[in-house]
Design a protein around this nucleic acid. Sequence first.
DNA 1: GTGGTCTAGACCACC
DNA 2: GTGGTCTAGACCACG
Lengths: 131, 131, 131, 131
Amino acid sequence: MTPTDFVHINTGSPEPIYRQLIEQVKRRVAAGQLKAGDEIPSVRELAQALAVHPMTISKAYSMLEMAGVLERRRGLSMVVAAQHHRAQPAASRIELLRPSLQKAADEARQLELPKAEVLGLLEQLLDGNTP
Amino acid sequence: MTPTDFVHINTGSPEPIYRQLIEQVKRRVAAGQLKAGDEIPSVRELAQALAVHPMTISKAYSMLEMAGVLERRRGLSMVVAAQHHRAQPAASRIELLRPSLQKAADEARQLELPKAEVLGLLEQLLDGNTP
Amino acid sequence: MTPTDFVHINTGSPEPIYRQLIEQVKRRVAAGQLKAGDEIPSVRELAQALAVHPMTISKAYSMLEMAGVLERRRGLSMVVAAQHHRAQPAASRIELLRPSLQKAADEARQLELPKAEVLGLLEQLLDGNTP
Amino acid sequence: MTPTDFVHINTGSPEPIYRQLIEQVKRRVAAGQLKAGDEIPSVRELAQALAVHPMTISKAYSMLEMAGVLERRRGLSMVVAAQHHRAQPAASRIELLRPSLQKAADEARQLELPKAEVLGLLEQLLDGNTP
DNA sequence: GTGGTCTAGACCACC
DNA sequence: GTGGTCTAGACCACG
């Protein structure tokens, strides 16, 4: 997996870069696209590919390590952790989506939008081009 | 409308308080729950009701004024602005929801979740209790 | 509590500064010297007192927050977290000491030192001047 | 002495592997378990037995040579050095233990643990199984 | 005033 | 080659 396939960042977003990285990696691991033992791009490599400071990458990796998603191998690049981080079944993965959907649902209710319209727009967006 | 009905805030949320206020007011105006000329709670009154620093309320009100949603009346509390801010039709209001749904859709795609499950969860959340 | 009483660091130690801070704060909370709700020195204040870069302090505070020991109050200084972090009874606190004692015990065994001598030295060190 | 009896390493420990090797060998020499002239496992042999990179073993051996603990014999494995490294009396050996005990004592004081409890735990650990 | 994020760049430890 | 730590200093968001 090349560094540019590994993650994408949006420097314009209010969400900090390091957090974008964390969330994307977590989702990829949950979806099974990243499997236990898979090597991830080195800090310097990814930093160069994304045109970001290495410390920003390092911060994200460190937090993923603390969260148990990645493991360090001293002197070598980091790998996806074995324990507790195999791909999760869809029934479990959907829980990772709940916060975003909850926020959207709250907003829709305050806007007094008909349910059908909201579901229609989401369906349309789910069919959209891969970002 | 009492101050506590006017808006609700969640101090635990990562979203800043002043932004929670702004977004809620905008949605209420768009939905027609707040109409042109309606008085809104004073800075002090709302600050006390929400147990928030008055400057935070003031900042939100100022930004809503700059956005043309509120108007300042000499000696009076602020009121909902007349121009350009009547209730919008649903077709237009749904655009205010698009960013949140887009974010959820992107996440769902990265999680490789089946469309039906995602739509099912949203439908369920839309039926939930009013927050 | 003044910043210089709050923690002490040893720049000569191989243990990174930010980690020294973390461990000391955890011990002070466990011992009950720092109680839930107590304010801690601000990042800038402590950085100046210890002659360390503010980011080093910030890193330690962030990790203590993630560990649930500290809580952020937006716009204000951080405080000792309420939940799960009241002073622990001695029976529980001693577990925090176990790793260090285990290491010493392992070394003593490899050095084939008589138990009495080892315990004697530790007793002497426990009576030493407050560091 | 087989390679696996010679030293044990813990790859999970924060202490670097090469340093674990160095300290263990020093303690074994001080205790008299390794005597002047004793052959030690070759770099390759030990590297394979411990599943560690040969360079890591080599680095440890080189440092032990620089410290005067080991000697290189042309064409042969390394041996324990004759000079200055016979077994030390207990009174001297205990100084090698002082740093670890000092660290434990400092922590105990910050945790405000009663002396008796600390000494009790250490005694119990000294009676534990050989690691 | 508070903490958070990021960049630039140095130096170290490890394998 | 790998990641970790620290400094210097800028800029932002929040209250």
